[in-house]
Design a binder for these strands. Structure first.
Length: 569
DNA sequence: CGAGTTTGACCAGCGC
DNA sequence: GCGCTGGTCAAACTCG
């Protein structure tokens, strides 16, 4: 080197060697720096570079090198540079009073000179040996920690995957259980031709769609039997083959909810039946706004095959999500593009019902109906149905994830338990929503969950200035997209995100869009998993679903989840 | 001119 | 079988 360099070492022996350039000198240095081991004249470290790395204490730091990392370089050059470096260092000490905090080559002197470096002493040799051993130990420790880190990352990813798979599996189990139950009932019908069985079956299905409020009242009055809870727990236990299905389920989950964004899959089915489910068209219709007349019915024909039975049952489990909100506009903005394809004046409501189809992509099956409530025309009822087959904008994703979460809980949380009673408690617990916020339709042929914003404190401000709908508090621990939103909010140090979080602190969707927009799901997932409390929240979420914990502990559970998320911020 | 809306017609399910 | 109803279609219309 042909110009003075400042050499500095931190007081910590493990610190890097920083070669800095005094202020006023702007030359970029081409240099090679070798730290020699005087005991055997071998290089301990080697560093080269010609760029400024950073500016520290008013001096340009040309480069940094790990003092304790062993390197190599041509010996001849190493010697030359070694000398120059040492010489320059001494000069710098004299001229610029450079503070070198570490006695690099000698253990008993604050200064350094060429002879000591080149000749070495036994004491220096011991110091080098000792530090070399320390270096090796530290290096080994770092390697070990890196390995542990990678392992933990893998575990976390696996937990993440398993969580989604578990969620899907729980739903599948419950669906299978319901199918089995229905099949059993039908077989009994076929064998006995017993009308009572028929009525009992109808009763079971009616129970599925009992009004949540009624269920809550029943729960308050009667409580729930422990045996029922235990049975439900047993039913929700993870089967041995769950691991095998996890990868498959994961892919399904991603395709269903994470990428496309979903409303519940609701393919319209128009099959005739014998009309066991009564067609309620009274206040329920007015409330939900959309009670299709083309009611899927349970086909009790004796020659119906298993496939048809399953299809029928699957259809019954499909859900719709209605959103009631006060709005002056003719339609709430939910981030999707809609094309109106029809309008009808429905019976019992002078306000026309408008039919919209999603036009964001060809072949998208999502439709919605918009109608003002007959009782309060300031209330706009928007009912969603179908499955987006295309990527959604972040705003649409927020709505889709919310409605999907509600429908998902409707399907998974309202399945009949082995005792034939509807598990509305789970839904209520899982929703953790304000009283009366979510209601399951008892009469709609498709199970319909209604998110009622009109009684919420935010009802009057349920739409942002930009027209995006802001939904009130909904805690959807088992919905990935929702969890994603929580995470997104958490990362923004605000966890009041549309569709999930407290209304009075409702967060404008565009605020989370920079994250959500650029993000692929994987990025958001990474952010999610970066949350140190994610695992705790995850455990709580799964517990809330599978464990079917007692109502009294539900509040704690919900708050735990929320607290975990909150704490992460 | 293309995209979206309006509106009457049509279809299917259901009850009487 | 007929009428009612909800849902959809598609031609006509509107708008930018």
């Amino acid at each position: 080197m042909d110009k003075p360099l400042g050499l500095s070492f931190g007081t910590d022996p493990t610190s890097s060697l920083i070669i800095s350039q005094p202020p006023g000198i702007n030359t970029a240095w081409k240099h090679d720096i070798i730290i020699m081991d005087p005991s055997n004249d071998r290089p301990l470290n080697h560093c080269s570079g010609d760029e400024y790395r950073s500016i520290s204490n008013g001096k340009r730091v040309i480069t940094e090198m790990d003092f304790f990392a062993v390197g190599s370089c041509p010996k001849q050059k190493a010697c030359i540079i070694k000398k120059e470096c040492i010489d320059e260092r001494v000069e710098q000490q004299n001229e610029d009073d450079v503070n070198i905090g570490l006695n690099l080559l000698t253990g008993n002197s604050g200064s350094c000179n060429k002879s000591m470096v080149e000749d070495g002493t036994s004491q220096t040799k011991e110091v080098y040996d000792q530090r070399k051993k320390e270096l090796e130990l530290l290096q080994a420790e770092i390697d070990h920690m890196n390995e542990e880190n990678q392992l933990l990352k893998g575990i976390l990813n696996q937990v993440n995957r398993n969580y989604y798979a578990l969620q899907m599996h729980v739903v599948a189990l419950k669906q299978r259980q319901q199918i089995h139950k229905a099949t059993t009932v039908k077989n009994e019908e076929v064998i006995n031709g017993n009308l009572e069985e028929k009525q009992r079956k109808g009763s079971i299905f009616a129970r599925q769609f009992l009004d949540l409020g009624k269920a809550e009242r029943a729960e308050m009055g009667e409580g729930r039997s422990q045996s029922t809870s235990e049975e439900r727990n047993r039913d929700c236990a993870v089967s041995p083959n769950i691991v095998e299905s996890m990868e498959h389920n994961k892919s399904q989950m991603i395709s269903n909810s994470s990428i496309s964004g979903v409303f519940p899959v609701l393919d319209p089915l128009r099959r005739s039946g014998d009309g066991e489910i009564s067609d309620h068209k009274t206040s329920e219709e007015a409330f939900h706004g959309w009670v299709p007349n083309k009611v899927p019915k349970i086909n009790t024909s004796r020659d119906v095959d298993d496939e048809q039975k399953e299809e029928t049952m699957s259809m019954i489990r499909k859900a719709r999500v209605a959103v009631r909100a006060r709005s002056e506009a003719s339609m709430i903005s939910d981030g999707c593009q809609w094309r109106k394809y029809g309008q009808k004046v429905a019976k019992g409501n002078p306000c026309p019902r408008a039919y919209y189809r999603c036009t964001m992509a060809a072949g998208c099956t999502v439709r919605k109906q918009v109608q003002r409530c007959s009782e309060d025309q300031a209330v706009l009822i928007t009912t969603y149905e179908g499955h987006h087959n295309h990527p959604l904008s972040p705003a649409a994703m927020a709505m889709a994830s919310t409605t999907s979460a509600a429908a998902s809980m409707l399907l998974s949380g309202s399945m009949p338990s082995p005792d034939g009673l509807m598990n509305t408690n789970l839904l209520a617990k899982t929703l953790a929503c304000p009283p009366g916020f979510a209601t399951i339709s008892a009469s709609a042929p498709f199970p319909t969950v209604t998110l009622d914003l009109t009684h919420s404190p935010i009802s009057s401000s349920s739409q942002s200035p930009q027209g995006h709908l802001l939904l009130p508090s909904l805690n959807f621990p088992h919905n990935f997209a929702s969890a994603l939103n929580v995470s997104a909010g958490a990362l923004h140090n605000q966890y009041k995100v549309s569709g999930l979080l407290s209304p009075h602190q409702g967060m404008e969707l565009p605020q989370i869009l920079p994250l959500m927009a650029d993000t692929s799901v994987s990025a958001a997932t990474a952010a999610l998993t970066a949350d140190p409390n994610f695992t705790a929240a995850l455990v709580a979420a799964i517990s809330s679903i599978i464990g079917n914990v007692q109502a009294s502990s539900n509040a704690n559970n919900s708050s735990t989840i929320r607290n975990s998320i909150d704490n992460s911020t």
